[in-house]
Computed example of a mutant assay.
Amino acid sequence: MAEQVDAQGESGRAVLGRTLRFLREKEGKSLGQLADETGYDKSYLSRLESGERLSKVTVMEDLDGYYGAGDLLVSHWKAARLDAFKDQYKEYMKLESTARVMWVFTPGVPGLLQTEDFAREVLSKAQTTADVDEWVEEQVAARLGRQYLLRQEPQPDVRIILDEFALRRPAASAQTWHDQLLHLEAAALWPNVALQVLPFSAGAHHHMNGSLTLLWQRDGSAVAYKEGNGCSRLIEDPDEVLRNRLSYDRLRDLALSPSDSLKFIRRVLKEHRHHEAHP
């Protein structure tokens, strides 16, 4: 098997595709037979094998189970998903995937907590080229793929501060927004996630134009990652990382407690349901 999945000189997506084809041929299956037995479309499976498409991680989990391959395909998928991102973000994602502690502030609903439909709506509005559907589905799969780290073992300890703005800017679809609010409510109850809302009543703050993430590795090393105004920056200098940690601490001091934040989210959900029932 090692010879079949040697990744030297190939993109992660190419290695994943070649591994998919190898496993299928090893089982003596045609694409048609595989489609019939797994329920996935034949042309979709073909595009995965050719490296033209990136699947959701659940597809790789299904195929790992089908082939009895352990987590081989999922492990290759983790590398393949990096192909969808820019170089600096790829480096950040590698660090994110091994982080033991994550602190996040975002003015919008963070990608780590977006539902598939909400992510698709957000990403669709960001794309203006002719091949919008293909690009959007690629980015949706990649974004949902990041959420895999929240359920890997050992689970990282995650704190997310969410600006109230994120809860006041609904999706165009009422059902999509309802499901997104339900997902935020559920996430606030996960044992490894502390979710806090930064209310409008806290006033102006120093991260209104962008997001901030702090990551700590098992060895105690830390980095910060900032996005805003169309720019992004990975920060590794210890002094600057410390400054950003103190900056995050000030935001946390302004935010509602996790229990009060859960009440806040539930109140917004109740308001949404009332509005939909009485337009």
Score class of each variant (00 low, 15 high):
residue 123 L to G: 03
residue 150 L to M: 14
residue 162 L to C: 05
residue 62 D to I: 12
residue 122 V to P: 00
residue 145 G to Q: 02
residue 97 S to N: 13
residue 107 P to F: 05
residue 177 W to Q: 07
residue 109 V to C: 05
residue 126 A to W: 11
residue 134 E to C: 00
residue 134 E to V: 15
residue 145 G to C: 04
residue 152 Q to D: 12
residue 59 V to K: 02
residue 124 S to D: 10
residue 148 Y to F: 09
residue 161 I to H: 01
residue 154 P to A: 01
residue 103 W to T: 00
residue 134 E to R: 13
residue 95 L to G: 12
residue 55 S to C: 11
residue 138 E to R: 13
residue 57 V to K: 12
residue 172 A to Q: 13
residue 139 Q to C: 04
residue 113 L to V: 02
residue 174 A to L: 10
residue 144 L to D: 04
residue 177 W to Y: 15
residue 156 P to Y: 00
residue 155 Q to P: 15
residue 127 Q to D: 04
residue 89 Y to A: 09
residue 99 A to P: 08
residue 124 S to M: 08
residue 100 R to P: 06
residue 83 D to E: 13
residue 64 D to Y: 03
residue 151 R to F: 10
residue 151 R to D: 14
residue 114 Q to V: 02
residue 104 V to I: 12
residue 77 W to K: 14
residue 87 D to P: 11
residue 129 T to C: 05
residue 104 V to L: 15
residue 133 D to E: 15
residue 123 L to W: 02
residue 127 Q to C: 12
residue 180 Q to Y: 07
residue 181 L to S: 07
residue 92 Y to V: 08
residue 73 L to I: 11
residue 60 M to K: 06
residue 141 A to F: 04
residue 155 Q to M: 14
residue 94 K to I: 06
residue 77 W to R: 14
residue 136 V to I: 11
residue 155 Q to E: 15
residue 158 V to I: 07
residue 93 M to W: 04
residue 140 V to W: 05
residue 99 A to S: 10
residue 130 A to K: 14
residue 148 Y to M: 10
residue 119 A to D: 09
residue 70 G to I: 08
residue 80 A to C: 08
residue 98 T to M: 01
residue 68 G to L: 07
residue 177 W to E: 10
residue 74 V to T: 09
residue 155 Q to D: 12
residue 100 R to C: 02
residue 60 M to L: 14
residue 52 E to R: 08
residue 80 A to K: 07
residue 163 D to N: 13
residue 124 S to K: 09
residue 152 Q to R: 15
residue 57 V to M: 11
residue 63 L to H: 03
residue 64 D to K: 03
residue 121 E to I: 03
residue 127 Q to G: 01
residue 105 F to A: 01
residue 108 G to C: 06
residue 95 L to A: 13
residue 54 L to T: 09
residue 115 T to C: 07
residue 104 V to C: 11
residue 56 K to P: 09
residue 91 E to D: 15
residue 99 A to D: 00
residue 81 R to S: 05
residue 78 K to G: 05
residue 177 W to A: 08
residue 93 M to H: 11
residue 150 L to S: 02
residue 173 S to P: 13
residue 138 E to G: 04
residue 158 V to L: 00
residue 128 T to M: 05
residue 176 T to Q: 02
residue 174 A to I: 15
residue 100 R to Y: 00
residue 78 K to P: 08
residue 152 Q to V: 03
residue 96 E to I: 00
residue 126 A to I: 12
residue 57 V to E: 13
residue 98 T to Q: 06
residue 129 T to Q: 08
residue 123 L to K: 06
residue 124 S to E: 13
residue 137 E to V: 04
residue 173 S to L: 02
residue 145 G to M: 01
residue 130 A to W: 13
residue 123 L to C: 03
residue 162 L to D: 01
residue 78 K to T: 13
residue 91 E to Y: 01
residue 111 G to R: 01
residue 124 S to L: 09
residue 98 T to P: 05
residue 176 T to D: 03
residue 96 E to H: 09
residue 99 A to M: 02
residue 90 K to E: 10
residue 156 P to M: 02
residue 131 D to C: 06
residue 60 M to I: 05
residue 129 T to R: 14
residue 68 G to Q: 02
residue 140 V to H: 04
residue 114 Q to A: 06
residue 173 S to Q: 04
residue 67 Y to L: 07
residue 151 R to P: 04
residue 130 A to C: 06
residue 101 V to S: 00
residue 151 R to Y: 13
residue 93 M to G: 09
residue 94 K to P: 08
residue 172 A to M: 11
residue 169 R to L: 10
residue 90 K to F: 03
residue 171 A to P: 04
residue 136 V to S: 06
residue 88 Q to H: 14
